[in-house]
Design a protein around this nucleic acid. Structure first.
Length: 433
RNA sequence: GGAGGCGUGGCCGAGUGGUCGAAGGCAGCGGUUUUGAAAACCGCCGUAGUGCAAGCUACCGGGGGUUCGAAUCCCUCCGCCUCCGCCA
């Protein structure tokens, strides 16, 4: 959420910056200035009435003790009118506050000044490339045609419908090894604290990180029974529970930055992605991810963002996977992000780079929603932390990249050296089950 | 699923209708004392909104109600705990 005061005082600037995301914001924000000034005015009148009532209450307290019943009754009847007036102003005010808050909750973060301006991924900026494109003296296959039998989409469909997968034997072990490997690297080399979190959450955490209220259609919701008042949601990313671990907390001086990593499955309805990436593991309703989350002081967040991105990259590098880093343009940024680097891994079968990690700087946007603050020094006022997160990495997509980049002509795959100890073998080949 | 209990400031814990944003204690911060430390003593010590400021306002799990006035009474929702049942 943006700062209400900032929006009220700099409405034109906010509109200008949001227009870089989408031209529609200009009209959507047109009435916001009016709402903001109504809010201020009502706060003023309501508080003045409340001050009068409070003063009168002290007087009443004395009258009650003094025992002058007649004066008390007289004054009491006068105060009824004041109370009624106050109540009516409070009702108006709370309606305005609610509307204002709802509007603010649906406004995305302001793009960072550095972010390339553009309306689609065409305008994303390539920041760097790492490694070399693997070359093949045969036609490289797609991951779903490699290690035949190990990736089982028919059985998955029987169980759960489309966009689910079953992994057999060495494919399942590869998934598990990747999770372990990533967590090991982040905890042992990159300085992260590992955390295991719930996969079902209430709505408040989803509001905290920005998935709700706007993107409910992307989520799976669970009901405990028909008239469940507060359904739980399956997390669409580990970012949600991990970032919200510190909701409503104030970090003490000296306790930042904090870097957490955690493995979670992720669940996405993929509403609106019909026809996209329909084959294979690339886009699933359920996938595994190792998430990186960092809480940093405001002045140090840019630096922390660069580090977190490099930490995610370290996995790709140690696995020897060719990739590039792109900075998303303003039109491609996610709702809560002010700046995002996507790590895109090379997929030989598609002849292009595909997203395997998305690392974002949120500034204080999520912290304001989730009320995550820190005290810069003893006795100082709390301020909002900056949050940063990224995939480190999406496990299924890493599995795809390994299969494709390390494939052999016969459809088998030789494993990157880093994974061999965990896998207990040097290569994997197809097998029917 | 059945029965009961509880939600107060960083923590513990008073407060059952009237200057209560809230006693007291612990922790923390500043000081006095001390060669230094501990102890003792004194002071400070929640968050937010609004205003140029002094200040004012709000917040005792959330929402609603009663009342001139609610942390205190009523309703409702949420969360947590204990016991029983079921269960990985």
């Amino acid at each position: 959420m943006l700062d209400a005061r900032y929006v009220a005082d700099h409405l034109d600037e906010v509109i200008q910056r949001l227009k870089n995301r989408s031209s529609t914001w200009e009209s959507q924000l047109a009435d916001l200035g009016d709402l903001a000034s109504q809010r201020r005015q009502l706060i003023g009148t309501t508080e003045a009435l409340a001050a009068r009532r409070n003063a009168a209450n002290q007087e009443m307290s004395k009258l009650a003790k003094g025992g002058d019943r007649e004066a008390f009754a007289l004054r009491r009847d006068e105060l009824k009118a004041l109370s009624a007036e106050l109540k009516s102003e409070e009702t108006k005010l709370s309606a305005i506050l609610k509307t204002f808050e709802e509007r603010l909750m649906s406004i995305p973060n302001l793009p960072h000044a550095d972010a390339p301006v553009g309306s689609s991924e065409e305008q994303n900026r390539v920041v760097r490339e790492w490694g070399k494109k693997p070359s093949f003296d045969f036609e490289p296959k797609a991951h779903y045609d490699l290690v035949p039998g190990l990736l089982d989409f028919e059985r998955a469909s029987k169980l759960s419908g489309s966009r689910f997968s079953v992994l057999w034997a060495q494919a399942s072990r590869l998934e598990r090894s990747l999770i372990t490997y990533m967590l090991n690297v982040h905890t042992e080399q990159n300085g992260y604290t590992e955390v295991a979190v719930p996969y079902l959450v209430r709505s408040a955490p989803l509001e905290g990180t920005g998935q709700l209220p706007k993107f409910e259609q992307d989520l799976f919701q669970t009901k405990r029974h028909e008239d469940d008042e507060e359904p739980l949601y399956l997390i669409p990313t580990g970012e949600v529970p991990i970032t919200n671990l510190h909701a409503d907390e104030i970090f003490e001086p000296g306790s930042l930055p904090r870097s957490y990593c955690g493995f979670t499955p992720c669940f996405r309805s993929e509403a609106g992605s019909y026809g996209k990436d329909v084959r294979g593991l690339f886009r699933q309703h359920q996938f595994d991810k190792v998430e990186l989350v960092c809480f940093a002081e405001a002045e140090k967040s840019e630096e922390a963002f660069q580090k977190l991105t490099a930490d995610a990259e370290s996995i790709l590098q140690q696995l020897g996977l060719h990739y590039r880093v792109v900075e998303l343009c303003t039109g491609d940024l996610g709702f809560s992000a002010t700046k995002t680097y996507d790590l895109e891994v090379w997929l030989p079968s598609q002849g292009r780079y595909r997203e395997i990690s998305s690392c974002s700087l949120f500034g204080d946007f999520q912290a304001r929603r989730a009320k995550i603050r820190y005290r810069p020094a003893v006795k100082q006022k709390p301020q909002l932390v900056h949050t940063i997160n990224g995939s480190g990495l999406a496990v299924g997509r890493t599995l795809i990249a390994i299969l494709e980049q390390y494939q052999e002509a016969d459809g088998s795959v030789s494993l990157p050296a880093a994974l061999r100890p965990l896998m207990g073998c040097d290569e994997i080949a197809g097998q029917k089950f």
